[in-house]
């Protein structure tokens, strides 16, 4: 009898061991899984290809745009001061829209509302450059996902999306990034899927890319229908990932294999 109870308890524990969240002390950036060469590329600004985009973004920051003929710098002055810590707390709740927006969404709102310019396309050179430049101002600062209670239901939605199995391979994000991050998929390490470095330079892409691009790649990898750029689902996933990474340092522009 006692043995049966023990077995039942053990079985319950094994069940619970699946899909458990990563304890704060065990959290690791994708950086820590990389080889020495790739780490050196990220560490050394002169070797980091993402820095080219940051410089590009710095130039765009002071360029006038739109029918308002205003540059970002005319409202925000020196980004090194005004943008410090901003990327660390995005996605943030946007009251006018009643939903969270990510950093790219914020930049595009500034374009349409304050510069009276057309929004940049997702993954365009300009949007990547400006978001890399803004996010770089938070480099080394802890991710401080917003505590706004209005965000809570969206974090919860992102969490549900993270757990949901989907696609022809019927896998959820958590199957790889919570349960198997210490293992290898076809020989390469699966990491915890931490959002610390975006936008980042990916060697496989040979270019800078956003977090949404990375998420779409994982979703297509499990042979599911990728959500559109800018869709609420991708922003909710970003939001959940940032809340899951609370306290981890921002690495933008990171480098990943």
């Amino acid at each position: 009898m006692r043995i049966a109870v023990c077995i039942a308890l053990l079985a319950a524990m094994v069940g619970a061991a699946l899909a458990t969240e990563i304890p704060p002390a065990a959290r690791r950036s994708g950086y820590s899984f990389m080889g020495a060469d790739t780490k050196a590329m990220q560490d050394e600004d002169t070797a980091n290809p993402g820095m080219l985009s940051v410089l590009d973004g710095e130039a765009l920051w002071t360029r006038k745009a739109g029918s308002a003929d205003k540059a970002c710098a005319e409202c925000h002055n020196d980004a090194r001061v005004s943008m410090k810590g901003v990327a660390a707390r995005y996605p943030a709740f946007e009251k006018m829209l009643g939903k969270p927006i990510d950093l790219e969404g914020r930049i595009n709102l500034c374009r349409t509302n304050h510069q009276q310019a057309t929004p940049f396309a997702y993954e365009s050179r300009e949007l990547l450059a400006l978001s890399a430049y803004v996010a770089q101002q938070s480099r080394g600062m802890p991710i401080a996902a917003d505590d706004d209670p209005e965000l809570a239901p969206f974090v919860e939605k992102g969490h549900a999306l993270f757990m949901q199995r989907q696609g022809q391979l019927n896998l959820g994000c958590a199957n790889c990034h919570d349960d198997n991050w210490d293992r290898k998929l076809a020989g390469s390490p699966i990491t915890q899927g931490q959002p610390t470095g975006y936008p980042l330079y990916r060697l496989e892409w040979q270019s800078l890319g956003s977090l949404q691009r990375r998420l779409r790649a994982c979703i297509t990898g499990i042979r599911a229908q990728a959500y559109d750029y800018g869709s609420p689902e991708l922003v909710e996933l970003e939001l959940y990932l940032m809340s899951r990474a609370r306290g981890m340092p921002v690495e933008t522009p990171a480098v990943r294999p």
Binding site: G15, L18, Q164, R165, Q166, G167, Q168, L169, N170, L171, N175, D179, N180, T220, R223, A224, Q225, A226
Partner: peptide, 26 residues
Amino acid sequence: AATIMPSYYRVDGLARVGASWRGKPI
């Protein structure tokens, strides 16, 4: 039921399968 191994000959009970794979077994 909790396995991560995909079902290679099944088309039902799957969510949001991408257009090029929909309705086909792996």
